[in-house]
Amino acid sequence: MTLQEFNTIFQNGLSKQNAGLVQLLGLCPLLAISTTLVNALSLGLATMLVMASASGAVSSVRHFVPHEIRIPVFVLIIAALVTVIDLLMNAFVHPLYLVLGIFIPLITTNCIVLARADAFASKNRPLHSVVDAIAMGLGLTMVLVVLGGMRELAGQGTLLSGIDLVFGEESKQFVLHVLPDYQGFLLAILPPGAFIALGLLIAAHNWQKARAERRLHAATPMPA
């Protein structure tokens, strides 16, 4: 894998083909779980983990899978991996597992995982596929984190609340009370807030893209 390939894959994952902002895949967990930063980050990382292992697995067996049963095979692989992760989380980070709840098994049906398996991993070498999955997962996590941060900040004026669910009681000191004595803007935490915040994020992303294009246009002189 060359550096250039690596760069292209990462650019696609983080911005150009970003799962959350451009492809709009996997919105169900994206919207439901991004109430706080910690939740968002956890689900994002879990999804990334599933994606990386699923893509790697799919890519390694891609030559043995006939075209007509590729979807069942991919779903089988993904479902198995998700169940494994579900069990592991249940065993080792139980409080967080309780919060993320049904959204962990739901990763199975997260279109972004299957989409990458089918669109990329089934056509590329394992290393590329894993890198692509990580890039995509990171892109999704990024969006989730920003969304979670926005909603948590606007909704309850804190950041990193619930960190104790992951790192134990003593990590509670890391919770940032950004706006002390904040009234709380409930809408941000409720489902409609998720849609509005995601809409704003997508708008910002498009705006930034359009601006970059305009700059590029202005920079290259028109051929005579």
């Binding site: 007509e68 049963i69 089988l76």
Partner: peptide
Amino acid sequence: GAVVLGAALGYAAV
């Protein structure tokens, strides 16, 4: 399940 599904899909594909 796998055998049935796989066979059905393979048959249908052709």
